[in-house]
Amino acid sequence: MDWALLAESAVNGGLVGLMYSLVAMGIVLIYKSSSVPNLAQGAMTMLGAYVVLAFANNAKAPIWLAIILAIVTMFGVGMAIERVALRRLAGRPIIMILMMTLGLEILLRAGSMTIWGGTGRPMPIGISDDPLFLGPLLINRTYAVGAAVAVAMFALFVLFFRTRMGVVLRAISDDYTAAWSVGISVERGVALSWAMSAVVATIAGVLWASVQGVDQSLAQLLLKGVTVAVLGGLDSIGGALLAGILLGIVEGVAASFLDPLLGGASRDLVDAAMLILTIMVRPHGLFGRHDIERI
């Protein structure tokens, strides 16, 4: 057994896992405020990356400006999605809502392809490809940056949920009707959560695109995002962070064992198995709230 290799795949796995957390956080944000599981988060991630490229290539903006412009644009897109697609579905059976997010997934994914075409393109954000040396371990720089951004986003959201607006969003997720009864604008709160989630998607999109380029495969981050979100407990931002690390490590280590045995591509299998296992053993995840039952 090669311990150094194992440690390296664990560390890099953890960092990649934190980048999964970025996708998962978007799902958690929306679930937390409206109990809608957003299956379009992967497509939103992909759309975010394409919008950044559009600003950078077509409008010739420098990359940092393109990212900021894209964030603003996607904020609006998130609001619009809630306004047009989700608001009228409030109170409908969950199957309709799931189908709606699947419809959005198809529309956003195919829509981006229609506008920008399917050939993969690079996303140069100026992070060098040289690995970082941590003792004997080689660490991918982009992963390290992505992980740092994920932790920063986590801290930001924890702070946000303590503010007045954050408290209002949490109140909405607890009880729609009671929120209405004290004059909270439920619709605006939910729209805000979609908008924030679209912003997180853009950031995740940029980071992932700088790893694997901008193309359709960004949308497949959905499976990772969902697995991490469920594992962490669908409404826990901190859970998403830790579950990301956990999934990343498990995936990295398992892949280094299984890939030679199974002829590669065992990561998706590990994800799906983790998802099933979580749901069967502990559906509310590591840190999801149980509904409070008083005796």
């Binding site: 209002v168 949490r170 109140a171 009880d175 009671a178 009864s181 909270i184």
Partner: peptide, 25 residues
């Protein structure tokens, strides 16, 4: 102001946060 039947407090919020959430207007 309407106090709903069956109490319906925001269960996962503390009383303090309940009051803050209720001052949205």
């Amino acid at each position: 102001a309407h106090v709903l039947e069956g109490r319906r407090v925001f269960e996962h919020l503390t009383p303090d946060e309940n009051l803050i959430a209720a001052s949205a207007v």
